[in-house]
Design a protein around this nucleic acid. Structure first.
Lengths: 336, 336
DNA sequence: TTGTACGCGTTATCAT
DNA sequence: ATGATAACGCGTACAA
């Protein structure tokens, strides 16, 4: 049943090398090629992947590491879209995907990935500022592309968005609307996105010479924490809130309404992510759109570029974001 | 950097075979074993996976095929839990997971999977009664376990629940409550689950000599279709509705309330799945709990059993379900 | 218990 | 353009 390249060669009356050439697009006369191809098709021959990998040194398989709580993984469309984006490119490139989720401790996972060998490269999501898994991956000699994690030493390849800039532009938008006491609900502290967005917020506030003391309240990216943080901010008196993501903004929206305050008249509200539901909130949410699927595509592409051009330095890709203005900040005045 | 088993052997002053034995747990004197192990650890040696696969015939990698719309994949916790369950077992077994989603047509995907070779086996979700991808997988000689798909010819290994029995018990529950005009909202027709649940519903109705004509309305598993179907059923006059899943039941609940009818006083409502939100609906939803994560675990375990005992016939696993009775059928009378 | 030697199915190099 | 033949790194009968 499982035939080898030698069987094909014998049937065609050519050498094994020739068959290999038609398989891999080497120089073969067109007559020979057709003859061999015919047999190949007829027997539905499939080269042995392990042998191929052993001989050539590449497997056509890349690893994808998403070390996050699986519950969250499937809750948040972010990860779904990331996966889809990568999947798109892998199919184009005729490559396979090996997936690792967070069902095990990071150290153990790292060991497992490296032991798996046979991976041409790895794409890993990394959100924490410090991450032993990422450190290990980079220390190994497996070509790696990071998503969402800019390493301070700039030695790694990554794909990310400019969180600082994006947060600055949201905050500036609120400032331009005349808001003065603008609160910020942060993401989970210790993540790159949370820290950078704080910096962006801070930068915009400082530039406008507005006070931000006591106006930064920690959240954890989850909806409930947004409600709690909003509560706190309302007590401290704010006329606008910039939430580090849409999920928390949703929670904040509920809390604000519950206090009998109007959005945006009393409190303008902005989020980050532009999730599906964000456009359908009441009122629709002003937010930052980051093309997540595109990030996934870009990450995979970057990895393939890395593989094609070894020796080339690390590749760093910063994807653009888009401020999506809706009624939660501009009320009925404009339609966005 | 990348050392081979020969390097280790040389460093230890033993033969390659001995190193291989300590690696794979063969018969080695304890002194030799320790000596070799020491070097192994010190050099952090990792055997080449491709060579290993080529020589031994097994790769330690299994394929997981979920040919469903990626959007749905991450929307419905069902898939997340399935994946987690499989992941659990794979880790125990020290195996890797190769994941394929539905980013490509089924025929093409099949070809890709088979070309990937080097897979020890495959777990595939299969919901349609007829599915060329599944047919191809079974026709190939890759050990395969199906989830959610009982083949009529009984030649395949699968893990599933007894949809007929479960649907029967839900319907019987409604009948015991004195309901007489019980409607059924089906899942997407052509899926095994939808068809089997219809059979179970039908069976219970027939046994009680209750009419079911015109009381079966097609849905598609999605929430909106549940609302539409409920509308139709209300017009036809029902005092109970059994929805083929919770998402549609949620839609139905909304529709029923919108008509000013009370649940369960006017219309009792039951679903299927026991999703997270089901217990928090108003009123909490009576439904069927199927241990999805357990299904995932079971599927992976079944595959490993299959691999351990080749030649053994197909393995069929039917997992139990549990009727979860809540206020959407029993009102305030009982608490469940 | 240990070592020898061959085979796994390709790719790639070097002649021809 | 094609054909020998040597790797690739490991597992495993078989022999010692």
């Amino acid at each position: 049943m499982a035939q080898t390249i030698d069987d094909i060669a014998a049937l065609c009356g050519v050498s094994r090398a020739t068959v290999s050439r038609v398989l891999n697009g080497g120089p073969v006369s067109s007559v020979t090629r057709e003859k061999v191809q015919l047999v190949l098709d007829r027997l539905n021959y499939r080269p042995n992947a392990a042998a191929r990998t052993l001989a050539s040194g590449r497997s056509g398989v890349i690893g994808v590491v998403m070390h996050i709580d699986p519950h969250l993984l499937f809750q948040d469309p972010y990860f779904s879209q990331l996966l889809q984006g990568m999947s798109d490119v892998l199919i184009e490139q005729d490559a396979g995907m090996m997936l690792w989720l967070a069902t095990q401790p990071k150290e153990q996972l790292l060991d497992r990935i490296l032991s798996m060998g046979m991976l041409d490269g790895v794409v890993a999501t990394a959100y924490d500022v410090k991450d032993p898994l990422i450190d290990g991956l980079l220390a190994s000699h497996v070509p790696t592309v990071l998503i969402g994690h800019r390493r301070p030493d700039r030695s790694a390849s990554y794909v990310d968005i400019d969180h600082v800039h994006a947060a600055d532009s949201v905050t500036s938008h609120l400032i331009r609307l005349g808001r003065r006491r603008i609160g910020h609900i942060t993401g989970r502290r210790g993540t790159v996105a949370a820290e950078d967005r704080i910096v962006g917020y801070q930068r915009a506030m400082d530039r406008a010479r507005l006070p931000s003391e006591g106006l930064i309240v920690d959240g954890d990216y989850n909806r409930p924490s947004g409600g709690a943080a909003a509560q706190t901010l309302l007590e401290r008196g704010v006329d606008a809130i910039f939430s580090a993501n849409d999920a928390m903004a949703d929670g904040a929206l509920e809390a604000i309404k519950q206090q009998g305050r109007r959005v945006p008249e009393d409190v303008a509200l902005a989020g980050f992510d532009d999730l599906d539901f964000s456009a359908h909130l009441d009122p629709p949410l002003t937010t930052v759109r980051q093309g997540v699927r595109q990030q996934g595509r870009e990450a995979a592409n970057t990895l393939f570029q890395l593989l094609a051009d070894r020796g080339g330095g690390p590749r760093r890709v910063i994807l653009p974001t888009e401020l999506v203005i809706r009624q939660s900040t501009v009320g009925g005045v404009q339609r966005g």
